[in-house]
């Protein structure tokens, strides 16, 4: 099931090479290689604590994660030394597992500001309101949220919807969805899945879906699967790997030697 040969082609949208990451002096990721092509959907799976979230945040450039070695190339550019905001403007989006509360900042002001940072999204106030209205309707969101403080007092499901709204508004080239499915009820999960479909259809964007639950994948067309255990990618494969994991769990992978890149 080895697809390591894939890693050598050079037209990938995202190229992670030999990436080691530490948090507060503890190394979490060890020599990770990962490629995602434009428009491709990669599912990153693994048990709790494997380092999946760390990889997502490291690709985003979160300052809390220190790069000990390796590179991250995106769209032909080396991003390794760029701050998170510059990476975001280059077209990377990370949907947080636990979206952060920002007291004092109304959702409206926030959305308007992040749009205005992207010249390709320049639109009039009227167009902006219309766009947001469409997206809110699609995500079954109460427009009243727009005047509320960003994520403050929002339920888990509401926070995730607001993340999806930003995904669809910003139309990034690569979206990393970190456990977007966790803690959602059936209805919210359906709405989020619909949002992911819309993103794939309309933005033709690439996706990294981080999850340890295969449920959300039922409605998404998956191109590739990578399995992470103990800070290493231990397996690459096609969508059929998902069924394997469903059946056998992660234990089968944990015993294996890490894959050499």
């Amino acid at each position: 099931m080895s697809e390591t040969t894939n890693l050598n082609h050079s037209n990938a949208l995202l190229e992670v090479r030999d990436l080691s990451i530490s948090v507060e002096d503890a190394e979490i990721l060890h020599h990770v290689d990962l490629d995602v092509d434009a428009g491709q959907c990669l599912v990153l799976m693994g048990p709790n604590g494997a380092g999946k979230t760390t990889l997502g945040h490291a690709i985003m450039g979160d300052a809390a994660y220190t790069v000990d070695g390796g590179t991250i190339d995106f769209d032909g550019e080396d991003l390794t030394d760029l701050s998170a905001d510059k990476r975001a403007l280059a077209g990377i989006f990370l949907s947080y597992q636990a979206p952060v509360e920002i007291p004092g900042v109304p959702l409206y002001s926030f959305l308007r500001t992040i749009c205005q940072k992207r010249p390709e999204l320049k639109m009039s106030a009227r167009q902006f309101r219309q766009r947001v209205r469409e997206l809110a309707a699609e995500l079954d969101m109460d427009p009243g949220y727009l005047t509320r403080e960003l994520n403050v007092g929002f339920s888990g499901g509401e926070k995730k919807k607001v993340e999806m709204l930003q995904l669809l508004l910003l139309q990034p080239k690569l979206a990393i969805l970190d456990e977007t499915d966790s803690g959602l009820d059936v209805d919210a999960l359906a709405i989020v899945s619909k949002g992911i479909e819309t993103y794939r259809r309309e933005c033709k964007g690439a996706l990294i879906i981080i999850t340890h639950n295969t449920r959300i994948l039922e409605r998404v067309e998956v191109d590739r699967v990578a399995v992470m255990v103990d800070g290493r990618i231990v397996e690459h494969g096609g969508p059929s790997l998902i069924a394997d994991i469903d059946e056998r769990g992660f234990e089968a992978f944990e015993a294996r030697e890490p894959k050499e890149a």
Binding site: H57, M60, G61, D62, A63, A64, S83, A84, D85, A88, L89, F93, L94, Y96, P99, V100, E101, I102, F110, T113, I114, K117, R118, Q166, L170
Partner: peptide
Amino acid sequence: LEQTGFLASRGLSEAD
């Protein structure tokens, strides 16, 4: 750090 990290991930610099 968590808040600035989150806002940075949406493309906002410190000044923004």
